[in-house]
């Protein structure tokens, strides 16, 4: 009895809060995708004020729901290839970001995991620290670094003009978006990779070396397969937020570099076509769920295979 009371007292307050301020808004947004936009943006109301009593009346009934609910916004998404193309482009940006993060994060995580114990915490802290500085500041820093006045821009343009091409601009391009996405998400890749690599049994590598495996073979046959759970976890942690990013392309991407998040922001704040914005958000959620499911399924499959082989 007391046990039940304790459980109830502990879990209800946070549960109630999150149902009201997370679950309910999410469901309302899903539902909004099936509604009509309002005359002045937003949503067409489902209720109206009764002129006689001044009370709110629900206008939608079982007979007339077709006047209030529609698949129009979904049709628009399918009819106009532009939106799907932008989504595919965003998937591509997120994939590229993930791959670069693996390429950059792997050596770093490996090195930290193989360093003497007393340095590990510091090296790890140095990876996490930039993540805790304000997100906008990190984007802004790249505005300076990639700006036309920067040493990097000047150096690149020196080379480019030497080969007889027009000078290029780095800022407000897809290139800037990818660089910044990698920068913002790199710690998310290093942490799970490190957690995995740290647990590896070094005796395996020594044994392989004794048996004549080259450094390359030891990596591809032992370290890499064992580290895959860490790679998948890191990939999910990078890919998911990168896919939904709107601030990076908004600030640093120009017109060429926009992603699906920019379109969602535009629908909600500028065009104010909420039903279509909701449809786009559902598409983004779908992409996120797909990726999360994929990472979980691959992880589980590997585990099963491991159990089978003893």
């Amino acid at each position: 009895m007391q046990e039940r009371l304790g459980k109830w007292l502990l879990s209800w307050p946070p549960l109630a809060y999150l149902v009201v301020f997370f679950l309910l808004p999410s469901l309302i947004m899903m539902f909004a995708a099936f509604r009509y936009p309002g005359d002045y943006g937003g949503l067409m109301p489902l209720t109206s004020e009764d002129p006689a009593t001044g009370k709110l009346v629900l206008d939608i009934t079982l007979d007339n729901w077709r006047d209030y609910l529609t698949l129009e916004s979904f049709v628009r998404l399918v009819d106009e290839p532009l939106y799907i193309e932008l989504f595919i482009k965003s998937l591509w940006y997120a994939t590229l970001t993930t791959l670069i993060c693996i390429a950059m994060g792997y050596p770093l995580a490996w090195l930290i995991a193989r360093s003497p114990k007393k340095y590990r915490d510091l090296m790890l802290l140095l990876v996490i620290l930039p993540f805790w500085s304000n997100f906008l500041i990190r984007i802004y820093a790249w505005m300076i670094l990639l700006g036309p006045q920067s040493a990097l821009s000047k150096a690149i343009n020196l080379v480019v003009t030497a080969f007889g091409h027009e000078p290029v601009s780095l800022l407000f391009t897809p290139f800037a978006v990818i660089v910044c996405l990698v920068y913002v998400h790199l710690p998310f890749m290093v942490l799970p990779l490190y957690a995995n690599l740290e647990k590896h049994d070094m005796a395996l590598l020594d044994a392989a070396q004794d048996l004549g495996a080259s450094a390359w073979q030891r990596f591809w046959k032992i370290t890499w397969p064992l580290s895959l759970p860490g790679v998948y976890a890191g990939a999910a942690l990078v890919f998911i937020p990168a896919l939904g990013m709107f601030a990076v392309p908004d600030i640093i991407g120009g017109t060429e570099g926009i992603m699906i998040g920019n379109l969602i922001k535009q629908q909600f704040l500028e065009t104010r076509d909420w039903p279509f914005g909701a449809v786009l958000s559902i598409m983004l959620t779908g992409g996120v769920l797909l990726m999360a499911g994929l990472a979980a399924a691959v992880g589980r499959g590997k585990q099963k295979a491991k159990q089978k082989h003893g």
């Binding site: 549960l15 999150l18 808004p25 939904g244 909701a278 959620t285």
Partner: peptide, 26 residues
Amino acid sequence: LPFLVLTPIAIPEILMGVSLLIFFVL
């Protein structure tokens, strides 16, 4: 509870932002 606690961290922030916008305005 674990689902509701952890999902807001896992999904892109923009999804939570726009759904709360709709919620507050409605």
